[in-house]
Design a binder for these strands. Structure first.
Length: 264
DNA sequence: TGTAGTAACGAGTGAACTTC
DNA sequence: GAAGTTCACTCGTTACTACA
């Protein structure tokens, strides 16, 4: 098994090869650039809506969720967007700024019955990721699941669990330990590594393959009557993808699947 | 044939539950 | 008690079934 820098570079190279993931990211980045010219509360709402849509963070399903977050971000430093960006970058390096901490720890939106919903760490971290031009680590369940397993495989002297990185402060500290231990000095590459590992583990290939590659893969499975030969357990799609990864045409993804197989 | 109703699916989150 | 896993939530879309 090679070192993590190699697999982080491989993940980046896979995802930036005209994949839907890469195009989606470019669209979101474009929205940030366009709305920066007239930065106001509506710009923030637009950005959050786009991120929510592409990353399926489901904030639109909460009543008033996006508006609440937008208001909170706007209240941070008003129309001084640069100050928001700087605060996020500093928080990523050392998560001690109480204002940013409260942004992550506040509850947003309400349920149908008017009860408070909960936090929105994932969506806010993605907003910070784009606001800082990828100088902020993305927090989501994929990363939270994968990070402890990679630690277990590569850095046995540090014990990280899903529970221990539940809050944003501990999560960022863990990412920064990961960053220095792995020498992957780039939050974007770390995100690529964790996200791609998570997606393959979960058996979700739609954002990883090009449309024709995806159709080709599914058709190959059909032609070999693989769907008929074995019961596809929807709760265990990951092992299915890893089992048949050799049928994928992309050599880089096949190699990355080898790495994912070692993540227990 | 058209309409209405039902079920399954997608994805990420947080809460609740189970296991060690 | 900590860690890990499962489940419910959310609702638009799609596919399927039942009925007029």
């Amino acid at each position: 098994m090679k070192d993590l820098i190699y697999y982080a570079d491989l993940a980046k190279s896979i995802l930036e090869d005209e994949k839907k993931y890469f195009h989606d990211k470019k669209i979101i980045k474009k929205i940030f650039e366009l709305t920066s010219k007239n930065y106001d509360i509506h710009a923030i709402i637009s950005r959050l809506t786009i991120i929510d849509s592409y990353y399926s963070t489901q904030m639109n399903k909460r009543y008033f969720g996006i508006e609440d977050i937008a208001n909170k971000i706007w209240e941070l430093y008003g129309n001084n967007e640069k100050k928001v960006e700087t605060a996020f970058i500093e928080f990523a390096e050392s998560p001690s700024n109480e204002i940013i901490l409260s942004l992550f720890n506040d509850n947003y939106g309400i349920k149908k019955d008017g009860e408070e919903y909960g936090k929105a760490i994932s969506l806010i971290s993605k907003y910070a990721y784009f606001q800082t031009n990828f100088k902020f680590p993305i927090y989501d369940n994929l990363a939270r699941k994968v990070l402890p397993k990679i630690f277990k495989l590569y850095f046995t002297n540090v014990k990280i669990t899903m529970k221990s990185i539940e809050n944003i402060k501990n999560y960022i500290n863990a990412i920064n330990i990961f960053k220095s231990n792995s020498r992957i000095n780039d939050y974007n590459k770390i995100d690529n590594l964790l996200w791609l590992t998570g997606k393959i583990r979960e058996g979700n290939l739609s954002l990883i393959l090009k449309k024709d590659e995806y159709i080709d893969f599914v058709n190959t499975l059909k032609s070999k009557k693989i769907f008929e030969k074995e019961e596809i357990n929807k709760d265990d799609k990951s092992s299915f993808v890893l089992k048949w990864s050799d049928l994928l045409k992309d050599e880089k993804i096949i190699e990355f699947c080898e790495f994912v197989r070692n993540i227990k």
